[in-house]
Amino acid sequence: MHFRAFPPQNSGKVEKEMKYMIETDGLCKQYKRQYSVKNVSLKVRPGCVYGFLGPNGAGKSTTMKMLLGLVKPTQGSIRIFGKEILEKNRIEILKNTGSLIEAPSYYGHLNGRENLKIVQTLKRVPEKEIDEVLDIVRLEGQQNKKVKEYSLGMKQRLGLAAALLGRPKLLLLDEPTNGLDPAGIQEMRELICDLPKHYGMTVMVSSHLLSEIDQMASDVGIIHKGKLIYQGDLQKLHEKAKGSIHIHVLDPAAAVRALKEKGELYEERDGDLVFAEQGEARTAGLVAFLAGRGAQVTRVTEQQKSLEDIFLKLTGKQVSL
């Protein structure tokens, strides 16, 4: 997928003026007595790729559908482009958005171009944009083929092309790599990563694959059992994934006494003294200190915490990789 024919957006003025492209406050969706989404307060910054991560059934699609007004929230409010979404202004606000929710939407009896023509007519954008988006998703050669004959990956790309029509300021993509082959997944990831840079778009992309979000997103929201359990800079999440230093000593009592005197923060785990990783010099100093106080250090190990560990700790659930 490439960007040759799709000119950049004319202005990022609107985005610069507002703090968040998407902002929800206490968003809830209840089906009978079960909460599918509970008190979700999203904050999506302009120009970022916001990865919405969570295991299957966590409430990602329901949240995204609520953002688009496809599902009515039980409680809470939604602001897109700084405006509160209400039934009367929903379509007007959504004119500047593109979406691909769950499986791609298409008319199987029409060809790819005719499908895009429908979206182009409804979005009231110039017809030449059809060629531009077909070029981006590399479907120019298949545009006259009936969509029912497309592979799932091609349908997904057509769905993305439809979402890109009208050069939206905000793109909501729900599991966009579903059904794509490895090359297609890579292409899709590259495209998503480039959208903010090339067109000033803000992208909210959901996935149950941590590695995928890790490769695409700058910001992340982790949802589990309908609750947003983490939201923020992905870099900060990476920092949380920093490792720990495990020191084994022969005289733990002496070590504990010394550490308490020094006011050092530590944890005792499986007979080891565990410290947060603070750089090599600090670790060397700590070992020298304990050795000097007669704790008899026998083993020093560094344990790295991966993003998966963090995810696992946050959700208590096995993550897909």
């Binding site: 496809l70 979406s99 979206v119």
Partner: peptide
Amino acid sequence: TLKLLCTL
């Protein structure tokens, strides 16, 4: 297609 059309 309803989930697409209902946004348009």
